[in-house]
Every structure is written in structure tokens, then in C-alpha cells.
Design a protein around this nucleic acid. Sequence first.
DNA 1: GTGGTCTAGACCACG
DNA 2: GTGGTCTAGACCACC
Lengths: 123, 123, 123, 123
Amino acid sequence: MIVLDYSDKRPIYEQIVDRMQTLIASGILEPDEKLPSVRSLAVDLSINPNTIQRAYSELERSGFIYSVKGRGNFVRADEDLLMIQQEKLLDAVKKQARSCRDQKIELDRVLVCIKEVYEEEPV
Amino acid sequence: MIVLDYSDKRPIYEQIVDRMQTLIASGILEPDEKLPSVRSLAVDLSINPNTIQRAYSELERSGFIYSVKGRGNFVRADEDLLMIQQEKLLDAVKKQARSCRDQKIELDRVLVCIKEVYEEEPV
Amino acid sequence: MIVLDYSDKRPIYEQIVDRMQTLIASGILEPDEKLPSVRSLAVDLSINPNTIQRAYSELERSGFIYSVKGRGNFVRADEDLLMIQQEKLLDAVKKQARSCRDQKIELDRVLVCIKEVYEEEPV
Amino acid sequence: MIVLDYSDKRPIYEQIVDRMQTLIASGILEPDEKLPSVRSLAVDLSINPNTIQRAYSELERSGFIYSVKGRGNFVRADEDLLMIQQEKLLDAVKKQARSCRDQKIELDRVLVCIKEVYEEEPV
DNA sequence: GTGGTCTAGACCACG
DNA sequence: GTGGTCTAGACCACC
């Protein structure tokens, strides 16, 4: 469910955070569903448990999951948060669109790109 | 022409590289135009000349500028390179579009965002 | 009478202890009144009986309740203890007041807050 | 400037975060002032640099400081944030006041406590 | 078994 | 020298 990319410059914990957010936002992980335990996921991905711990802490801080000591981490049901997340993503889209425009890429080429992606396979 | 953002997590030299690339790709800096000297730009931005030097080196390595010993750095006229840059940017757009799709953002919302941006003022 | 908050970072047993202390101090639970049995309360809150047991043990240790083997747990009538509890709480109030003062919150704003609360509805 | 309390149940990094927030809110640390470096503070308090790092990360995340790689951490000037911080603190005060009220502590005793504190020495 | 904190020590990127 | 990430290994509290 999670694939790490060591050639990516972004830190590992951030890749995990992003992936989990996507899994939650897309509904693949349902509200109150239990996430893999810190240690088991660490073994799975063969990385240090601290790194998973950090990813989970970030997810809890930003409200995507809640953690119960001695029991595990669980998906939080929060529609508002997902909305805010979408807005953030759209802001990023706009920023990128400005780069395209500044580099004289025609509008249609951009739109076609987007449409292509939406016709691909889902997650 | 260049504004640094110290609260941005990206390194200073990278901000400069990006900005220069945009200025070149958008035609604001014209082919064979002379860039500000390392030292003068360093004074302007009140940062270490080494940082400017690094940015210029990166730009030269990736072919956006050429340097002439004792005279300065100049914008290279290279249509192919600009094309490659555009492709890179479009790849990034696709990657982002996948995120939007995975987070269940409707296609139309994304397209509208892009169109809005293209109707804004240029650089 | 007791509501657990799993997203609270405090341990479950501590939430129960606190709540019971409040119920006793406020007189809602009267002296020599019988508390719910460990097992029944565990079923009620759908948690592990061990957790209830731990809460009751803490309450007994600190003198709020006494337990009679084979009969159950009962509220202890102890005026002194309640006084000590009040002193503890007032110490906490002072500590918090210092934070307010250090953060340059005007004295009046704090006093008004307190007064507002005392005019609200009781438990 | 910072004193750790090992008998406190709260984690060390949290104590540091709180203390720094107070120092910033009270104006002892001024905007754009440089904080002690991660390593030097670690030596000072004789704790692991990772713990300082964590505290600083939290402070950056919540907007109290900004960090520049290779240069250090600096106090951020943000009036709004301080206001929000004050509101949070007053909410905590109200919560505590409810406990006092529920435990039948007279209003005047609480008010006197607060006033006493405000007449003590500052930070 | 679970999450959470801390230490020790290492490596990298930046200026 | 600065911040940032990661590993390895330990200890604690909770359930």
C-alpha cells in the first residue's frame, strides 16, 4: 500500500504522510479504521520505527488520524479537513499553472495533460 | 527582478536558479543578454557571493547561460532546451493532476482553476 | 455519568479518576454511596475491567473511596481530603495565572473570564 | 533562560516549546532575534540535540520561529499568533474555573489567588 | 502488544 | 558551524 522512493529528495516520513493522506482522502482507508502499527509498518518497509512514528505524529497533528496509547492509530472522520486539503491542492495547481503561463506553454496543452491523467487508472 | 524568501524551505541558490530560468523562458531576459555580475548581484541581495556563483554554475551546467572568462555570464539562445523545460513542467503538472484525481477533486474544478490563471495578468 | 474521550491524550484510567473526584467533591456522589461495580462499569464504558480496577485503586489509595471485599466500592466521607483537593486546584490556578501574566494578558481579562464561568449553569 | 524539570511528567521537548513561547510572547526574545543553535543549547541543557531539534521544529510548525538552513533559528514577528495564543490560554483558564466551581470553591478565593500572582515578580 | 520519548551517533545539504 | 533526517537501541506508560 505504501512504496518508498529513495531517489526522491523528499524525506521518507514525508512520503509516508502524503501517501496516507491520499489513502484517507480517497476513502481507501475508512474512518476509524486501524492503521498498521508503528513497529509492523517499520518492518514492512524495512526502515526505522522512529521514522514511522514521526510520520504518524504529523498525521495526528494535522488531524488525519488519532492515536490511542496501547491500542494503535486510527483514521479520523473529518469532512472539513478533507475540504481544506483539496483547497490547498488547488492552490498548488494554480501556482504551477502560473509557471506554465510564464513559460509560454499554451493553455490547451496544459488542459489536455490534465484530461489525460483523469482518464488513467485510479489509485 | 529577484526576490528571496528566507522562510521558504528551498535553498537560496535554487530560488535564484528557478527565477532565472523563468525570466529566460519567458523572454524577459533575451538571448546573449548579460546577467548581473556575481559580485554585484551578491551585494544587491545581500547574500554570500558563493551562493550566486553556485546558482550561475547550475544554470551553466544545465545550458541556460554561458560564461565568458573576464566578461561575465550571458543568456544562451537554445530553443531545444526551453522545450525540454516545458516537458519537465508538464510532467510535474501530470503528477499533480494525479493527486487531484486521487483526492476525488472533480476534473472541471481543476480545469477551471487553470483557465482562471491564464486569464490573469502576466509576470 | 462518565464520558470517555479517546482523542484525549490522558490515559483512560486517569479520566475516570478525575471524573469520580469531581463527582465526589461536588456532592453528586454522596458519602457511603456505592459506586458501580468494576465489571458493570467496564461493560458500560466498553473498556477493559483492568482499567476500571486501576482507577478505583488510585481512588482508594488517595482516600476518595474505600472498598469492602465482596460488597463493592463506596464513597469516603472526608472533609480534610476535599480541602486538600481544593488547595491543589488553587495551586494549579496560580500556575496558570503566572502564564497569563507572563504573556501580558491584562489582569481584568482573566478576572472577567472567571466571573463569567461562575455565572454559568452548574455541572 | 531555560530550566528543565525532570520530575515533570511532560516531555522535555514540550517544556522547551512552552518556555520559548513564553519568552517570545513576553517580548524577552525580540522579532528576528537568533535563538541559540540546536547543538549549543543541547550542550547547555546537557540533553540530546535531537530533543532540541524537535522542540524547534514544533515552534516552527506553529509559527513562532522560522529556520534558515545553515544559519539558525529566528523569532518570527506575528502579532496575530500571539493573540490566538492568548485566547487559547484564556480558554484553559475557563476550563479550570469550571473545575473550581464544581468543587464548590468560592469565587472570591479564586479571584484572590489570581490577584496575588499578578502582584508577584515578573518572568 | 501498543504508542511515545530520549539518547547516541552518523550523514547530508547549506552558507 | 548550521539545521534536517535517519538509524539503532533503550525505557516508560498504557491496555
